[in-house]
Amino acid sequence: MLIGHQPKDFLLAVSGLTVSFDGFKAVNDLSFYVEENEIRVIIGPNGAGKTTVLDLICGKTKATSGSIQFRGKELTKMKENEIVQTGVGRKFQTPSVFEDLTVFENLEISFPRGRTVFGSLTFQRDQSVKDRVEEVAEMIFLKDKLNTYADELSHGQKQWLEIGMLLIQDPDLLMLDEPVAGMSVSERAKTAELLNRIIKNRSVLVIEHDMKFVEDIAHKVTVLHQGQILSEGTMEKVKNDPKVIEVYLGH
């Protein structure tokens, strides 16, 4: 582990992060810190910049200024695939799985081995791969669907599959963009259960609108508004913050 010179060893330290699209600052001088094994939920109205924050962390969007430190490494200077390889996994808002491949193949592609051109040419589907794929498939409730093509899955199952694809990478920081949006009530419950199971030994950054779901899982909540932090703390504290009430109920 890092021998920190900071008072605390943060897994992720975002400071002064700003991105501007043609002058419009979607994220504006944002700073926040995520600890090891913490579940952090980001909430905020539509267009607040939540997705953009995840985009910035995983390298999809380049920051205009500011820094993102992950285990002491500066992410803003790295390429997307390098960021993944240092241990950051990200799920997109709309389920993005490979529909022309089977569930097994989807998970196998995410298995962290043979990620170069040559490596993928010589990649062998050995027992350790099969075991791991099955283990993850079991977790995401898709054990009996391994040979199903992903386009035949329901919306909720696709969401799970994508979460599974992250799990198999075994990231230290897992970022989920609205994982239960569009799910049925029972699927939501299952997802909450899934998330509670997979957060062991890793930190999770979740964007979610479903307040019940947020209360269930969040250790700490960050409220984003117009690219800036409006409030941060426990769910209890945030819920009673007049500024938050103003933004959510004021208009």
Partner: peptide, 20 residues
Amino acid sequence: KLGRILVAMREQEDRVRFSG
């Protein structure tokens, strides 16, 4: 696996990128 990655890429380039 390279063949499957090509298929995957054609569909969801970003997902492949964010699979490392």
